[in-house]
Protein backbone atom coordinates (compact mmCIF):
# COMPACT_ATOMS: atom_id res chain seq x y z
CA UNK A 1 0.00 0.00 0.00
CA UNK A 2 2.81 2.32 0.98
CA UNK A 3 4.58 1.45 -2.24
CA UNK A 4 1.47 2.28 -4.21
CA UNK A 5 1.25 5.71 -2.65
CA UNK A 6 4.90 6.30 -3.50
CA UNK A 7 4.12 5.31 -7.07
CA UNK A 8 1.17 7.69 -7.15
CA UNK A 9 3.24 10.53 -5.76
CA UNK A 10 5.91 9.68 -8.29
CA UNK A 11 3.40 9.82 -11.12
CA UNK A 12 2.26 13.20 -9.94
CA UNK A 13 5.83 14.42 -9.79
CA UNK A 14 6.36 13.24 -13.34
CA UNK A 15 3.16 14.79 -14.60
CA UNK A 16 4.11 18.11 -13.00
CA UNK A 17 7.45 17.94 -14.71
CA UNK A 18 5.73 17.17 -17.99
CA UNK A 19 3.38 20.10 -17.62
CA UNK A 20 6.28 22.42 -17.12
CA UNK A 21 7.91 21.09 -20.22
CA UNK A 22 4.80 21.53 -22.31
CA UNK A 23 4.02 25.04 -21.14
CA UNK A 24 7.07 26.98 -22.15
CA UNK A 25 7.76 30.22 -20.33
CA UNK A 26 6.61 32.75 -22.93
CA UNK A 27 3.25 30.96 -23.12
CA UNK A 28 2.83 31.10 -19.37
CA UNK A 29 3.52 34.78 -19.43
CA UNK A 30 0.91 35.25 -22.09
CA UNK A 31 -1.70 33.39 -20.05
CA UNK A 32 -1.00 35.48 -16.97
CA UNK A 33 -1.24 38.62 -19.03
CA UNK A 34 -4.57 37.74 -20.56
CA UNK A 35 -6.14 36.86 -17.22
CA UNK A 36 -5.10 40.26 -15.94
CA UNK A 37 -6.72 41.97 -18.88
CA UNK A 38 -9.96 40.26 -18.14
CA UNK A 39 -11.67 41.48 -21.29
CA UNK A 40 -9.08 40.58 -23.87
CA UNK A 41 -11.08 39.71 -26.96
CA UNK A 42 -8.14 38.65 -29.09
CA UNK A 43 -9.19 35.04 -29.28
CA UNK A 44 -12.89 35.63 -29.34
CA UNK A 45 -13.95 35.54 -32.95
CA UNK A 46 -17.53 36.64 -32.44
CA UNK A 47 -20.29 36.94 -29.93
CA UNK A 48 -23.65 36.37 -31.48
CA UNK A 49 -26.86 38.11 -30.56
CA UNK A 50 -27.94 34.77 -29.08
CA UNK A 51 -25.01 35.08 -26.64
CA UNK A 52 -23.05 32.17 -28.09
CA UNK A 53 -19.34 32.83 -28.02
CA UNK A 54 -17.27 31.70 -30.99
CA UNK A 55 -13.68 30.92 -30.08
CA UNK A 56 -10.57 29.66 -31.77
CA UNK A 57 -8.77 27.04 -29.69
CA UNK A 58 -6.49 29.47 -27.90
CA UNK A 59 -9.50 31.50 -26.91
CA UNK A 60 -11.40 28.47 -25.66
CA UNK A 61 -8.35 27.29 -23.78
CA UNK A 62 -7.98 30.58 -21.94
CA UNK A 63 -11.68 31.20 -21.39
CA UNK A 64 -12.55 27.69 -20.23
CA UNK A 65 -10.05 24.85 -20.32
CA UNK A 66 -7.43 26.58 -18.16
CA UNK A 67 -9.89 27.38 -15.39
CA UNK A 68 -8.55 26.39 -12.02
CA UNK A 69 -11.06 26.97 -9.24
CA UNK A 70 -13.47 25.04 -7.05
CA UNK A 71 -15.92 24.44 -9.90
CA UNK A 72 -15.99 21.07 -11.67
CA UNK A 73 -16.28 21.67 -15.41
CA UNK A 74 -17.92 19.07 -17.62
CA UNK A 75 -17.03 20.06 -21.18
CA UNK A 76 -18.82 18.12 -23.87
CA UNK A 77 -17.67 18.32 -27.51
CA UNK A 78 -20.63 17.83 -29.85
CA UNK A 79 -22.26 18.87 -33.11
CA UNK A 80 -25.85 19.01 -34.32
CA UNK A 81 -25.09 16.40 -37.01
CA UNK A 82 -23.67 13.94 -34.46
CA UNK A 83 -26.53 11.65 -33.45
CA UNK A 84 -24.94 10.06 -30.37
CA UNK A 85 -24.00 13.58 -29.19
CA UNK A 86 -27.56 14.85 -29.51
CA UNK A 87 -28.86 11.75 -27.76
CA UNK A 88 -26.73 12.23 -24.66
CA UNK A 89 -27.25 16.00 -24.28
CA UNK A 90 -30.28 15.66 -21.98
CA UNK A 91 -28.14 13.58 -19.58
CA UNK A 92 -25.57 16.37 -19.42
CA UNK A 93 -28.36 18.87 -18.83
CA UNK A 94 -29.71 16.73 -16.01
CA UNK A 95 -26.29 16.30 -14.40
CA UNK A 96 -25.70 20.05 -14.72
CA UNK A 97 -28.98 20.80 -12.94
CA UNK A 98 -28.75 18.12 -10.24
CA UNK A 99 -25.13 18.79 -9.36
CA UNK A 100 -25.20 22.59 -9.57
CA UNK A 101 -25.16 22.55 -5.76
CA UNK A 102 -21.79 20.76 -5.95
CA UNK A 103 -20.48 23.45 -8.29
CA UNK A 104 -20.66 21.32 -11.41
CA UNK A 105 -20.87 23.38 -14.59
CA UNK A 106 -21.69 21.82 -17.94
CA UNK A 107 -20.44 23.52 -21.11
CA UNK A 108 -21.31 22.28 -24.60
CA UNK A 109 -18.60 23.04 -27.15
CA UNK A 110 -20.14 22.85 -30.62
CA UNK A 111 -17.90 21.73 -33.47
CA UNK A 112 -20.48 22.60 -36.09
CA UNK A 113 -19.09 24.54 -39.02
CA UNK A 114 -19.46 28.28 -38.25
CA UNK A 115 -21.82 28.89 -41.17
CA UNK A 116 -24.24 26.43 -39.53
CA UNK A 117 -24.35 28.33 -36.27
CA UNK A 118 -27.23 30.68 -37.02
CA UNK A 119 -29.31 28.36 -39.21
CA UNK A 120 -28.80 25.14 -37.20
CA UNK A 121 -27.14 25.45 -33.81
CA UNK A 122 -29.11 28.38 -32.43
CA UNK A 123 -32.51 26.91 -33.41
CA UNK A 124 -31.40 23.55 -31.99
CA UNK A 125 -30.56 25.12 -28.63
CA UNK A 126 -33.86 26.99 -28.55
CA UNK A 127 -35.95 24.02 -29.61
CA UNK A 128 -34.36 21.70 -27.06
CA UNK A 129 -34.31 24.39 -24.36
CA UNK A 130 -30.63 23.80 -23.59
CA UNK A 131 -29.86 25.64 -20.36
CA UNK A 132 -26.14 24.88 -20.07
CA UNK A 133 -23.67 27.25 -21.67
CA UNK A 134 -22.99 26.60 -25.36
CA UNK A 135 -19.93 27.90 -27.19
CA UNK A 136 -18.68 27.22 -30.71
CA UNK A 137 -15.12 26.24 -31.47
CA UNK A 138 -14.08 27.60 -34.85
CA UNK A 139 -10.60 26.24 -35.39
CA UNK A 140 -9.99 24.14 -38.49
CA UNK A 141 -6.48 22.94 -37.59
CA UNK A 142 -7.72 20.14 -35.36
CA UNK A 143 -4.39 18.32 -35.49
CA UNK A 144 -2.84 21.12 -33.46
CA UNK A 145 -5.51 21.36 -30.75
CA UNK A 146 -6.95 17.86 -30.29
CA UNK A 147 -3.85 16.69 -28.38
CA UNK A 148 -4.06 19.80 -26.18
CA UNK A 149 -7.51 18.74 -24.99
CA UNK A 150 -6.26 15.20 -24.35
CA UNK A 151 -3.53 12.94 -25.64
CA UNK A 152 -6.05 10.14 -25.52
CA UNK A 153 -8.44 11.82 -27.97
CA UNK A 154 -8.48 10.22 -31.43
CA UNK A 155 -10.75 12.96 -32.75
CA UNK A 156 -14.18 11.32 -32.71
CA UNK A 157 -17.16 12.96 -31.04
CA UNK A 158 -18.92 12.80 -28.67
CA UNK A 159 -16.00 13.50 -26.37
CA UNK A 160 -16.07 14.84 -22.83
CA UNK A 161 -13.48 16.48 -20.62
CA UNK A 162 -14.12 16.75 -16.87
CA UNK A 163 -11.84 18.72 -14.61
CA UNK A 164 -11.56 20.67 -11.39
CA UNK A 165 -8.54 21.89 -9.49
CA UNK A 166 -7.80 18.35 -8.29
CA UNK A 167 -8.66 15.91 -11.02
CA UNK A 168 -8.98 15.65 -14.77
CA UNK A 169 -10.62 12.95 -16.88
CA UNK A 170 -11.25 12.52 -20.58
CA UNK A 171 -13.77 10.29 -22.35
CA UNK A 172 -14.05 9.58 -26.08
CA UNK A 173 -17.42 7.84 -25.83
CA UNK A 174 -21.12 8.44 -25.29
CA UNK A 175 -22.86 8.18 -21.94
CA UNK A 176 -26.14 7.07 -20.42
CA UNK A 177 -27.29 9.27 -17.54
CA UNK A 178 -26.16 6.67 -14.99
CA UNK A 179 -22.71 6.35 -16.54
CA UNK A 180 -22.29 10.10 -16.69
CA UNK A 181 -23.45 10.61 -13.12
CA UNK A 182 -21.01 7.95 -11.92
CA UNK A 183 -18.06 9.69 -13.61
CA UNK A 184 -19.10 13.09 -12.28
CA UNK A 185 -19.42 11.69 -8.76
CA UNK A 186 -15.99 10.10 -8.97
CA UNK A 187 -14.33 13.39 -9.94
CA UNK A 188 -16.07 15.48 -7.28
Amino acid sequence: MKFLSYVLIGLQVISCVDNKKITSEPEQAAIVESSVESKSNDDLIAELRSGIMVYNFEGLDRALLQKNNDTTYVVNFWATWCKPCVKEMPYFEKVGAEYAKDKVKVVFVSLDFPDRLEPLVVPFIEKNKIRSEVVLLDDADANSWIPKVSDEWQGAIPATLMFNNKKRAFFERSFTFEELEKEVQSIL
Binding site: W81, C82, K83, P84, L111, A142, N143, I146, P147, W153, Q154, G155, A156, I157, P158
Partner: peptide
Protein backbone atom coordinates in the same frame (compact mmCIF):
# COMPACT_ATOMS: atom_id res chain seq x y z
CA UNK B 1 -0.23 15.74 -44.46
CA UNK B 2 -1.29 12.75 -46.56
CA UNK B 3 0.01 14.02 -49.92
CA UNK B 4 3.31 14.97 -48.28
CA UNK B 5 3.62 11.45 -46.87
CA UNK B 6 2.95 9.80 -50.24
CA UNK B 7 5.44 12.11 -51.95
CA UNK B 8 8.06 11.27 -49.35
CA UNK B 9 7.54 7.54 -49.92
CA UNK B 10 7.72 8.07 -53.69
CA UNK B 11 11.01 9.91 -53.19
CA UNK B 12 12.33 6.99 -51.13
CA UNK B 13 12.33 9.06 -47.95
CA UNK B 14 10.98 8.33 -44.52
CA UNK B 15 7.58 9.89 -43.81
CA UNK B 16 8.27 12.93 -41.62
CA UNK B 17 4.79 13.44 -40.14
CA UNK B 18 3.56 9.93 -39.41
CA UNK B 19 0.43 10.64 -37.39
CA UNK B 20 -2.05 13.49 -37.22
CA UNK B 21 -5.42 13.94 -35.58
CA UNK B 22 -8.65 15.33 -36.95
CA UNK B 23 -12.23 15.69 -35.84
CA UNK B 24 -14.51 13.23 -37.52
CA UNK B 25 -17.83 11.51 -37.13
CA UNK B 26 -17.53 8.49 -34.89
CA UNK B 27 -17.85 5.15 -36.65
CA UNK B 28 -21.50 4.08 -36.26
Amino acid sequence: FLANAVNELLAGKEVSVKETKAIGCSVK
